[in-house]
Structure formats: structure tokens, C-alpha cells
């Protein structure tokens, strides 16, 4: 009872302390907090460009992502910025806008598109922005087998403003396979002048339980193309061995005990308690025998 009471008091104190902390926090922030907006564009193989920004607030011990912050995306053009759209950040502080690669935004002299993401800020947080320029491009991943060696073929094209596609050459491409926590790099190749590059695909990469895997080709942080990603699925992986089905069920550490342990226990318990029951039955018989001839029990 007492412990419950102290518990309640502790909780109340804790909550009160928390509120006070927040109140003080509000009062102290006379000057708006510094925000950081990270902005990048990714060209994907489905002919679209992802505009992606992450807004975070800096403080002494790291940074926290800002939620519900309106981020406005612009296309930066010769005669001023053209607003594309506004997206509010999610719980991870991320706002993503996807636009088609074939679009009508004006390009600059180098034939590059330029985008800007802006967070206007308010009286609590400073405004921040980021800019990113790129030439839309595409990587197409395909597969072929020759002399029983497996190859991954990557074809890179860039999209001109008139809608034509031209191959891109002399660009480094990383081929990788997405795994649970990260991307496993398979090869690093360079596209030739025709925009094509190939790499041998190893035989010992593990796919899903039926051997399927995704192969991703990517140009990373290129000056002209930014980040370009293309991917394709193939069943070239080794079958992933799932432990769950053949997981041992009767071990010392499993919920159910090994069979012979249970049998031994039952045998021992039956043996011992059987004898107990015998002894108790004898006692009951003694009691009974005393009741049948009443004169006998009086005698002693």
C-alpha cells in the first residue's frame, strides 16, 4: 500500500518536473532554434525524380527530426523560382515529393534541372533551405548468362529536355544487393561510351527463401546526375535457409522438455508417491479397523 502511494507520488513529481522542463524550454527559446534541411534528388528507374528533404533541429547533444514542418519545393529557373508543391514532414522529419522525369521545368545552360527545398520557419525555428541540381538519368539493370557465367548488365541513359534519351558514358556505377540493414556491394563498374557496363554476378549471394533477390545499380552523388538508381529482380540468389521450420523443439532450452526427461520424472514421481499412497492407505485401514469393533477401542 505504502509502496503504491510512493509510486503515485513519484509519478506525479516526475510529470510535474517534465512540465516544468518544457515550460522553461519555451521561455528560454527567445531566439529561434537552428534548423538543418538536408535535400537530395534521386532519379529512379521508373522515370521519376524523388525530391527528398529531412528537417532537423540542432541542439547540444545531437539533433531531433522536426515533425509536421511544411517544406516547399521549387524548381529554380532563370526567371525566378517555380513552386512545385508543399509537403509536411512525417515523424522522421522527412518530406518527399515525387515528380516525373519527363517534365516541363526549365533547364539551365548545362541542361540541368535545379530544385530547391525550403522550410520557412516560425518564431520557434529558423528557416532553412537546400538546393540540388541534376540532369535526369536512368539506369536499367538486366541479366544474361554466358558459358554458365552470370552477368549483370547496366545501361545508363540521360534524358534531354526535348525528350530524347542519350546513353551516358564514363560514369562509375555501383552494383549492390539490398540486405536487411545495408546494401551489399557486388561490383563497381564504369559505363563505356555506349553507356553499357557489365559485371559478373557471384554465385554465392543469398536471396530470399526462393532465391529471388533485387540487384540495384546506382550512380552516387555524381556532379551532373546526382544520385541515380535502377533496380531489377532476379532469382539468382541461393535459397535462404530458414531456421524456423527445423528449429529443435525438445532441447534443454526449449519451452518443452526432452521426452526422456519427462518420462524419468513421471516414473520417479509415480514410484515415490505410490509408496506414500500405500502408507496412507494403511493408516486409513488402521482407522477403519478401530471403528468396526467398538468394544476393542474402549478396552485400551
Amino acid at each position: 500500500m505504502k509502496r503504491i502511494k510512493t509510486g503515485i507520488i513519484l509519478v506525479i513529481l516526475f510529470l510535474a518536473g517534465m512540465m516544468q522542463g518544457f515550460a522553461r524550454n519555451n521561455a528560454d527559446t527567445t531566439s529561434p532554434a537552428v534548423t538543418v534541411l538536408r535535400f537530395a534528388c534521386v532519379s529512379t528507374s521508373d522515370d521519376s525524380i524523388q525530391l527528398k528533404s529531412v528537417v532537423s533541429v540542432k541542439h547540444d547533444d545531437g539533433s531531433t527530426n522536426l515533425v509536421n514542418a511544411p517544406v516547399i519545393f521549387y524548381s529554380v529557373e532563370k526567371d525566378g523560382d517555380l513552386k512545385i508543391g508543399e509537403v509536411k514532414t512525417d515523424v522522421h522529419g522527412t518530406a518527399v515529393l515525387k515528380i516525373p522525369a519527363r517534365n516541363t521545368f526549365l533547364r539551365n545552360d548545362q541542361q540541368m534541372l535545379s530544385f530547391k527545398a525550403m522550410y520557412d520557419g516560425n518564431d520557434k525555428y529558423e528557416a532553412s533551405e537546400g538546393e540540388f541540381g541534376l540532369k535526369p538519368a536512368k539506369l536499367v539493370v538486366s541479366f544474361y548468362e554466358e558459358d554458365s557465367i552470370r552477368y549483370v548488365k547496366v545501361e545508363g541513359t540521360q534524358l534531354n529536355s526535348d525528350g530524347t534519351e542519350v546513353s551516358i558514358g564514363a560514369v562509375d556505377v555501383i552494383i549492390s544487393v539490398p540486405k536487411m540493414f545495408s546494401m551489399l556491394k557486388i561490383a563497381e563498374i564504369s559505363l563505356d561510351s555506349t553507356g553499357i557496363g557489365t559485371a559478373e554476378f557471384p554465385r554465392d549471394i543469398i536471396g530470399d527463401s526462393t532465391g529471388n533477390l533485387t540487384v540495384v545499380a546506382s550512380i552516387e552523388e555524381n556532379d551532373i546526375f546526382g544520385t541515380v538508381q535502377g533496380s531489377s529482380d532476379k532469382n539468382w540468389g541461393l535459397h535462404k535457409h530458414l531456421i524456423s521450420p527445423d528449429r529443435p523443439s525438445r532441447e534443454l532450452w526449449t519451452p518443452i522438455a526432452p521426452l526422456w526427461m519427462i518420462i524419468t520424472l513421471i516414473v520417479m514421481l509415480l514410484g515415490v508417491w505410490g509408496h506414500y499412497v500405500y502408507a496412507v492407505v494403511q493408516l486409513v485401514m488402521i482407522n477403519k479397523s478401530s471403528k468396526i469393533p467398538p468394544e476393542e477401542s474402549n478396552k485400551a
Binding site: 529512379t44 521519376s48 509537403v87 515529393l97 515528380i99 522525369a101 540495384v216 544520385t227 538508381q229 533496380s231
Partner: peptide
């Protein structure tokens, strides 16, 4: 990486889509 995972599988329809 997050971008890749978020972008995979959706096809742009030409309209401006805010993914949330």
C-alpha cells in the same frame, strides 16, 4: 538508402504526388 526503399515500386502517374 531510405530514398531507395521509399521509391521502389511506385510508378509516377505524371501528376505531382506527395508521398506521405
Amino acid at each position: 538508402k531510405l530514398g531507395l526503399l521509399a521509391g521502389a515500386g511506385t510508378v509516377a502517374t505524371g501528376a505531382l504526388i506527395a508521398t506521405g
